[in-house]
Amino acid sequence: MIKTFFDWLKQPMGMIAVGIAFLVLFSVAAFGLYQTQQAPEQPIQFPHKTHVAFGIQCLYCHPGASKGPSAGIPTQEKCWACHNQIQKTQTSALLAPLKDAVIGNTPIQWVPVAIVPDFVQFNHRAHIAAGRNCEECHGDLTQMTIYENPQVMNMGWCLNCHVEAAGEDQEKLIKLSDCGTCHY
């Protein structure tokens, strides 16, 4: 049985079938890959650009970035402090989830986008202290509605920047390219 199958594979029709099978597999893989790179569904279609356009600083909503490892997601209390003074909050369908969450006292389930795996210990504070600006990693949020990573956040990308930042300073290079700086 298996022998006849392999014999058939060597026939022209069999070759074509193998080719088609590979094409299908490849397309599925490509589609899957494409899917994973899409911004995830968020509970609220949060328009970063609108907020930035009002002149709100990144650190106003994400103050953790300057103090510690995690930038954090603002509390609903913080959202509401502004939004309950804005007429549109009461009427806009897009803002209904926020209203519901505040009234129902239920947390909004955000899907974090700019995150690193558990085995990476990333610290925002060190990067801010080194003079990096938010947009250098997170992209131009004046143009973004729902946040998307401007690039794949992988180790190569981290290291490129680290090596660049070290420049000619050997000691700094050692520190910034050390495995133990991020992995423990």
Partner: peptide
């Protein structure tokens, strides 16, 4: 398992 040049420790890089 590599040597950390910066901290001079033996590291275990889990990933």
């Amino acid at each position: 398992t590599v040597h950390s040049m910066a901290e001079e420790l033996n590291l275990q890089v889990y990933n």
